Simulated scan of single mutants.
Amino acid sequence: MRTNYVLIDYENVQPDTLSVLEKEHFKVIVFVGASQAKVNFDVAASLQRLGPNASYVKISGNGSNALDFHVAYYMGQLAASDPDAYFHIISKDTGFDPLIAHLRAKKILACRSRAVSDMPIVKAANSKSPSEKLAVVVSNLKQRGAAKPRTVKTLSSTISSLFQKALQEDELAALLKLMEKHGLVAISGTKVAYSLPE
């Protein structure tokens, strides 16, 4: 299973807990601002349970985007050493979105989520019903902008990866049929066209 790096902008988002990330395929880095003196106890306890899969980066200077530049630097370092990984930035700061778009254009898997619970991989793991799974897929496809899969094979592979390859073939086929039924995709031979909600 690919490594999922979770880079948390702690100046911007203070998660209640990180217990959903206590799995071996997650590596968590919490970026703490220079003027932040404390980290929430539940976050610290979750990070301790992650052991070597978790770390802090304390920013040494102040500035309007000091923490953001640190996140971008570490993400670049990690992408160079682990190009098959998936990168999750946890921040409400939309200033990261151009970086995410650039990374995707370079075929680096990345997204920004407003909270740990909003991460596509967490939503996918927590979705049980077909409609919940469909919502996760649609959200992921909308985030991709113009970089959506254009063939049935690539779309199937994308959905499978989103659910960490845990879907059975019949579940995957049912999701594609549900997407067609709701008019979200039109499949013509091997090609896919989209009609996603705004």
Rank of each mutant, 00 (worst) to 15 (best):
6 V>R: 01
46 S>A: 15
130 P>M: 13
72 A>W: 00
68 D>Q: 08
58 K>D: 06
121 I>Y: 06
82 D>S: 10
19 S>E: 11
61 G>A: 14
104 R>Y: 05
197 P>Q: 05
33 G>S: 07
92 K>D: 00
149 P>D: 02
113 S>R: 04
41 F>T: 12
129 S>Q: 09
57 V>P: 02
186 A>R: 15
143 Q>E: 13
192 V>E: 01
93 D>H: 03
47 L>N: 00
198 E>T: 11
105 A>W: 07
147 A>I: 07
126 N>S: 13
190 T>W: 04
38 K>Q: 14
155 L>D: 00
51 G>Q: 14
37 A>P: 01
90 I>G: 02
112 R>G: 04
62 N>I: 10
145 G>C: 08
51 G>F: 07
38 K>D: 12
7 L>M: 11
159 I>T: 06
137 V>Q: 00
160 S>K: 10
116 V>Q: 01
81 S>G: 07
129 S>I: 08
49 R>P: 01
87 F>W: 04
156 S>M: 13
12 N>R: 04
47 L>Q: 05
54 A>W: 02
102 H>T: 14
153 K>R: 14
188 S>V: 11
75 M>C: 11
194 Y>G: 05
85 A>G: 11
88 H>W: 07
186 A>M: 13
74 Y>K: 10
171 E>R: 01
19 S>H: 12
63 G>D: 04
45 A>L: 11
154 T>A: 15
25 H>A: 05
46 S>K: 02
194 Y>W: 03
153 K>Q: 11
188 S>W: 02
140 N>V: 04
46 S>Q: 04
68 D>V: 06
64 S>N: 12
22 E>D: 12
84 D>M: 12
49 R>F: 04
134 L>A: 04
117 S>T: 13
149 P>G: 04
10 Y>L: 13
133 K>T: 02
65 N>D: 12
11 E>D: 09
71 V>I: 15
103 L>D: 01
112 R>A: 08
7 L>W: 00
120 P>L: 07
183 G>M: 05
73 Y>L: 15
63 G>L: 09
145 G>M: 07
50 L>F: 08
79 A>V: 08
71 V>S: 02
75 M>A: 10
29 I>S: 06
26 F>T: 03
51 G>Y: 01
24 E>T: 11
141 L>I: 04
17 T>A: 15
11 E>I: 05
188 S>Y: 08
132 E>G: 00
59 I>K: 03
47 L>M: 15
57 V>M: 10
187 I>K: 13
175 L>V: 02
76 G>S: 06
36 Q>S: 09
105 A>P: 00
31 F>V: 09
37 A>T: 15
20 V>G: 03
175 L>H: 04
28 V>T: 14
191 K>W: 06
111 C>L: 07
189 G>E: 05
187 I>G: 05
